[in-house]
Simulated scan of single mutants.
Amino acid sequence: MNAMLLLVQKLSCDAEEQIFSEVSLAIEKPETYFEKFKDRLDERGIDSPIDQLAWISLVDALLDHDLAFELDWKETGLYICDVVDELLDRKKMVSMNWEEFEDGEFDELPTSQYLNEVSKKLREKGISLACLDIESDCYVLITVPSSDIDEIKKLAQEAGCRIQDSF
């Protein structure tokens, strides 16, 4: 099985069958995938099948199943904590107490630094916050067990993509 499909297994939780189907279609029949998901791809400014179509199909499928969240590059504050809570809840991972983020100390941080602070807190619970790099000015966030992050990053690299766990 190729690295992209192994990533599907690692990231798709209880939606593996649907996500596997979409990513496989993007790999095997890019024109058919493009036609089927033309509206979704148009929102990304993609007007024809591209080399990274399988990667984009994985990202979009994870977003559709609430297993990833696309966050604007200039988003800050407790909204980020709310997003992370939704991702954790969706995967039935531990819930977090964001009390120290409520006092305003972190409010002025740029998004990347805020995400690093959130990431540090999650690591204490054995969870990695990671970003699926789609070469855009946004962050496509996922949460995964810390024990899986190195393998997931390696699979992404083998698939010609990038997942990072530092911002």
Rank of each mutant, 00 (worst) to 15 (best):
Y79Q: 09
M4Y: 01
E105Q: 15
D85A: 06
P110M: 06
E35T: 06
V83A: 13
D72Y: 14
D137Y: 14
L11V: 10
D42L: 07
Q164G: 13
L67E: 08
V144D: 01
S166D: 11
H65N: 12
E16H: 11
D82V: 11
L58T: 06
S146K: 07
S57E: 01
I149S: 07
I134E: 08
A15Q: 14
L122I: 02
Q18C: 08
A156Y: 02
L63Q: 13
D103Y: 12
E17F: 08
W55H: 07
D14G: 03
L6W: 00
N2P: 13
F20R: 12
G45W: 08
K92G: 02
E158M: 11
E28S: 10
K120N: 07
K74R: 13
Q9I: 07
R162G: 05
V118W: 01
S48M: 06
D107P: 03
K29E: 11
A54W: 01
D47K: 14
K125I: 01
R44C: 10
N116Q: 05
N116W: 00
E70A: 12
R162W: 02
I56K: 10
I27G: 01
C13W: 13
S57V: 04
W98I: 03
K36G: 03
M1T: 11
Q113P: 00
P145H: 09
A130L: 06
L78A: 03
F20V: 00
K121T: 14
G77H: 04
W55P: 00
L7T: 05
K29G: 00
L53Y: 03
P30H: 07
I134Y: 05
V84R: 11
E124R: 08
D82E: 15
Q18H: 13
D14S: 13
A54S: 13
L122R: 11
K36W: 03
Y33P: 03
R90E: 05
D89S: 09
E28D: 10
L53P: 03
E86N: 09
C81V: 09
I142L: 10
L11S: 09
K120H: 09
T32V: 15
T111E: 06
V8P: 04
L155E: 06
M4F: 03
L88D: 03
F101A: 05
E22T: 14
Q9L: 10
L41N: 12
V94Q: 09
E16W: 02
C161R: 11
Q9T: 14
L109G: 08
V118R: 06
E43L: 14
A68H: 07
S12V: 04
G104K: 06
D47S: 12
N116V: 00
F167Y: 13
Y33D: 04
E117V: 02
S128M: 02
D107S: 15
S21A: 15
I163S: 08
L132I: 07
V8Y: 09
E151W: 00
L71G: 02
L58V: 07
K10M: 09
D148E: 14
I127Q: 04
D148L: 05
P110S: 09
T111D: 02
D60H: 14
L5T: 04
I152T: 01
F34W: 04
S48G: 03
E17P: 00
A68M: 04
D89Q: 11
T143V: 15
K153Y: 01
E158C: 00
E135D: 14
Q9A: 14
N2K: 13
E31M: 08
K36E: 10
L41C: 08
I142G: 08
S95I: 03
